[in-house]
Nucleic acid binder design. Structure first.
Lengths: 114, 114
DNA sequence: ATTTATACTATCATTTTTGATAGTTATTGT
DNA sequence: ACAATAACTATCAAAAATGATAGTATAAAT
């Protein structure tokens, strides 16, 4: 039994999935590998996610210590940048391996869109 | 846009997550790395999953071509073995990387259970 | 004065995922 | 004769994840 941030997992693999699982978290992290992005920049990279969901995912990634949020202004319109923490950066090889396999799978058994 | 088995994904990372995502799939795959396992052997490795869920997950993994199901008997009590397909085996490095990070995370920011 | 922009939050609804529990078939062991 | 076993499925329920839409604050640009 593994515990992380108060949550329990039956397997080391499910612990990781508890943190990066779901429809959007790996996509967020994948885009943050290159460097910090502002909220709206992330939205442009992921046009099909709703604002609510993007917000929620960023917040839990922050709570888990994977992503950090830096605010540059004190009054609206805000400037906020999201980036990987040092701990979050240790996930990069995992994310890359997940992303690479996605490409491989499409090349072999999937289809590339036009 | 990426398509795999009729489903569309906005990112190569989310495609992979569409296949191995969820609470249990990586755990199943992690245990199948060592070799084939029977249904009840899997259950023993994962005592907290319900039968229904284990069944469903195995079925979708099979449909996605990741796991194969081999039946050895024709009448009950059945003998059924689950194993990784060749295509499924290409996921092994991904699963290992996910599992290893889980161990790393616990060692650094989580807690090991007693 | 009005619009535009940023980074959200709030509310409500829907979909997806997971769980709880009981039942099925036919064979082997007691 | 009866219980145990294997690998499930069926039904119902609950929880979790995601989506749709509208609204907020304030400053700068038009």
């Amino acid at each position: 039994m593994y515990t992380f941030k108060g949550k329990e997992y039956p397997c080391c693999a499910s612990l990781t999935m508890g943190i990066i699982g779901g429809k959007w978290k790996t996509v967020i992290l994948y885009h943050l590998i290159e460097g910090p992005l502002r909220y709206n920049e992330l939205r442009k990279e992921m046009p099909t996610v709703t604002e609510r969901t993007l917000s929620l995912q960023l917040k839990t990634l922050e709570e888990d210590g994977i992503v950090k949020r830096k605010v540059y202004t004190s009054k609206p319109p805000l400037k906020v940048e999201y980036s990987l923490t040092d701990f979050g950066k240790t996930l990069i090889p995992v994310i890359i391996s997940i992303a690479d396999w996605g490409v491989y799978a499409v090349e072999n058994k999937g289809e590339l869109a036009v």
